[in-house]
Amino acid sequence: MKLSPFTYCRPDSVAEAIELLAGDPASYPLAGGQSLMPAIALKERRADLLVDISRLDDLRGISFSGTSVTIGAAEPMWDLERSELIRTHLPLLTRALSTVAAAGIRSRATLGGSAGWADRTSQLPATLVALDATIVSSTRRIKAHEFFVGHGQTALNHDELVLRFEIPSASLGHHDLQVVRRTYITWPVAGAAAVGTDAGTIRVALFGAAPAPILIVTSDPADAAEQASDRAAPFDDEHATSTYRQRVIPVLARRAVANVLRVET
């Protein structure tokens, strides 16, 4: 379907972008547009104003500080996937990115967009939670596990922009990613992103299990499965039933933790 009318603007600064967003309740920040544009085309979202933030320097770049990796919110997944720095320090993120949709989507899709969209079945919000990422917005710093509050819902205010992610290096801990999917181009059904920490515990974050990622910190596969089963708030969608999700989620949690442990021992 063709897009309903809207105004497009490309501000030169974060401050100007925020002013534009604040001035119109039906405004959206636009970067890669790989979730927003289909939603507008399908009339699931109505936009009066699209504020293009993709060329703002404050939202770009990939760097390493010695303990954490900083990733600009509008950096395309294409560049993140190919970043040696991310591959070295955040191998779980590289792996998760490679499972997102297709090359022709990742060429424009951004990590900031994926976080802001906060789809309940997306692997990237869960990966950010597992990696204990800090989300730096135009006004504050928020831990990923507090940022995602529901399906399509984040802690962000309407006039607040995600600028960048700060993610502690996880190069030494092993990781695992479980993804159940029906097709590649659409959202997954469910999955688990897990990473070993310096403290010897494993952080596993579940997606497709509840409206927001579920974080479990454990060192025991059976405990992960039990917690996953207890805390799951499964739902029906066009890819799977809630009954299926309730059954598969503990299995994925157990496998992810077991796989992290197996390579560590």
């Binding site: 497009y8 636009l30 547009g33 790989q34 544009m37 289909p38 085309a41 699209l50 293009d52 993709s54 294409w78 090359a103 022709g104 989507i105 060429s107 424009r108």
Partner: peptide, 18 residues
Amino acid sequence: TVIVRKRPVRACLYLAVQ
């Protein structure tokens, strides 16, 4: 699909003005 900066992109999700 068209190619922009050596990358395949969806021309239906890309505004001409972008």
